[in-house]
Every structure is written in structure tokens, then in C-alpha cells.
Computed example of a mutant assay.
Amino acid sequence: MTRRWQMALGANVLLGIPGVIPIWLLWFLAANWLSGPEPTDNDPMVLWLPIAAIIVGPYAMLWWSVNRSIRRRSVLTPRTYWPLSALATFLPSMALIIYSS
């Protein structure tokens, strides 16, 4: 039985390594949609939506299924478990952002 938070933290950090790509893709879509397209950009952002669905959808299902199975065996409360899982998933992306500048 998973009694500690280390199992959730470790699994989500490992899920965050391939998760760098979907996280970056979601950031890219949000940044371009909010700021508007470049004046010289000929490619519409709608073409990125199928790409995002193909990449983000399976990753989100994998992340959810792994965390749901770990959550069932954990004694952490849902109020503690889900923020810990989400933050741990973002750790590899944050490390890339910090060390790339």
C-alpha cells in the first residue's frame, strides 16, 4: 500500500519528462491565441489543433489513469494528492525553462 507521497512525486516527475512536449504545445497555443498571430504569419492556428489533440489527448489519458491508480492506494487526501501530482508533472518543464536561459 502506498503510504507516502514519494510514490506520487516520483511517478509524476517521470510522467513529466515526456510531458514536456504536451506542456510546451499547450503553452504555444495559448500564447499565440492570446497575443494574436504575427503580421507576416500565413499559417492559421487552426491547423495546430489536430496536432495538439493527437499529442495532448493520449498524454492526458495516460497521466489521469496512472494518477488515478496511485491515488486509490495512497493515504493522501485528494486535496493534497492532485496539486502535488500536477506540480510534480511540471518540474521537468520548469527545469528546462530555468536552465535554458
Rank of each mutant, 00 (worst) to 15 (best):
M1Q: 12
E38K: 14
S85Y: 05
W63R: 07
M7Y: 15
A88H: 12
G57N: 03
W27E: 03
P78I: 10
N67M: 05
T77K: 12
S69K: 15
P37L: 14
L14R: 14
L76P: 00
V20W: 01
I97Q: 05
G19N: 07
A52Q: 01
L96V: 09
W5Y: 15
P37Y: 05
W5N: 05
L87P: 05
Y59A: 07
W24D: 09
S74F: 08
M61L: 11
V75C: 09
R79A: 13
L25W: 00
L62N: 06
G10H: 11
L76Y: 00
L87G: 07
E38D: 13
N32D: 07
L49W: 02
R71D: 08
S101M: 15
L87E: 06
V75Y: 12
M1L: 11
V66M: 07
E38W: 10
V56R: 03
L96W: 04
L34E: 09
P44A: 03
R72V: 15
R71K: 14
G16F: 04
L14S: 04
R71F: 14
S74Q: 05
R3W: 05
Q6D: 13
T80G: 10
S65G: 07
W48V: 04
N12R: 04
L25S: 05
I70D: 02
L47S: 06
Q6C: 14
E38M: 08
G19A: 15
V56C: 10
G19V: 04
S93Q: 08
W48S: 04
W24S: 10
A88P: 04
L76D: 00
A60K: 07
L29F: 03
A88V: 09
L87D: 06
W63L: 02
T80Q: 11
L96A: 09
I23R: 00
L29R: 02
W27H: 07
N42T: 12
P18Q: 04
L29D: 00
L29Y: 00
T89P: 00
L76R: 01
L47W: 08
Q6E: 14
L84M: 09
T2D: 10
M1D: 10
R72M: 08
L25T: 00
N32H: 04
P78C: 13
P92K: 03
W24E: 09
I21T: 10
L49D: 01
P44R: 03
V66G: 06
T80N: 11
V46A: 15
W33Q: 07
D41R: 12
T89W: 06
M45S: 06
W48Q: 07
L87W: 12
T77R: 14
A8V: 10
W64H: 09
R68N: 11
W48K: 02
P18C: 06
Y59N: 05
G19S: 05
I55Y: 01
R4M: 08
P39M: 09
L29C: 08
T77P: 13
T89D: 04
L87Q: 13
D41Q: 12
R71I: 01
T2S: 13
N32F: 08
I97P: 00
V75H: 06
I70P: 06
L26D: 02
L15H: 02
I55T: 03
A31P: 03
I97T: 14
A11E: 02
R79T: 14
V20N: 02
I23A: 03
Y99A: 15
M61Y: 14
D43L: 15
W63C: 06
G16K: 04
P22Y: 01
A8N: 11
